[in-house]
């Protein structure tokens, strides 16, 4: 999909620039864009590594496991059909906590583990279960406590208050997470597997 979007954007730019007589500026912008990308990586490198380093400390200290215990009650609402001692419960909560803490590197393997655990009780191979759908929808809504990359980026470009967006981001992501979960619960009720 991105192949078409990327190619399309450049081709449209070339055509529009020819029509508006902007060819030189557009070609110069290409070179500048490439330079900006490298510059962006350099400005972000330090602060991004700072956060992945800190996150690793939390991971090693068992922070994910501890927070996970607090969240177990919520699971019974989201996944009512899972047994109390189903292994999927642990991996689901741990994936959610890792996402919450912005530990993307830890979250993905935990999420795949959760999907495998859910798949173990799937009777129809190749078709997603209700639990899988809810779980992936939760992951696409990404609730993150500290959007660190974004804050670093704002800082790098001279924002007066780089972290001012945190609470608005929480409000928006909680709402969209709720909408995603409710929508998937609603469809579940209407379709029987």
């Amino acid at each position: 999909m991105l192949n078409y979007i990327w190619g399309g954007m450049i081709l449209v730019s070339l055509i529009v620039s020819a029509l508006t007589g902007n060819v030189e500026t557009t070609v110069a912008a290409a070179a500048q864009g490439a330079g900006n990308a490298v510059e962006l990586c350099l400005t972000l490198l330090g602060i991004l590594c700072l956060w992945t380093g800190l996150a690793r400390i939390g991971e090693r200290a068992g922070f994910i496991r501890i927070l996970s215990r607090l969240l177990h009650p919520v699971l019974s609402f989201l996944f009512p059909k899972l047994d109390r001692n189903d292994p999927a419960r642990d991996s689901i909560v741990m994936n959610f906590v890792a996402n919450l803490l912005g530990m993307g590197n830890a979250a993905t393997p935990l999420g795949i583990k959760a999907m495998q655990d859910l798949h173990a009780r799937n009777k129809k191979r190749g078709v997603a279960t209700n639990e899988m759908c809810t779980f992936v929808v939760m992951n696409t809504a990404s609730l993150q406590l500290l959007p660190t990359t974004l804050i670093s980026l704002r800082q790098a470009y001279g924002s007066a208050a780089p972290s001012s967006i945190i609470i608005p981001v929480w409000m928006v992501s909680i709402c969209s997470l709720a909408v995603g979960i409710l929508a998937s619960k609603f469809i579940e009720r209407r379709t029987r597997l």
């Binding site: 954007m9 730019s13 902007n22 500026t25 110069a28 290409a30 864009g33 962006l40």
Partner: peptide, 10 residues
């Protein structure tokens, strides 16, 4: 970033 800057500059 090349595609986006071109898209805007054009």
């Amino acid at each position: 970033m090349v595609a986006i800057s071109m898209f805007r500059a054009s």
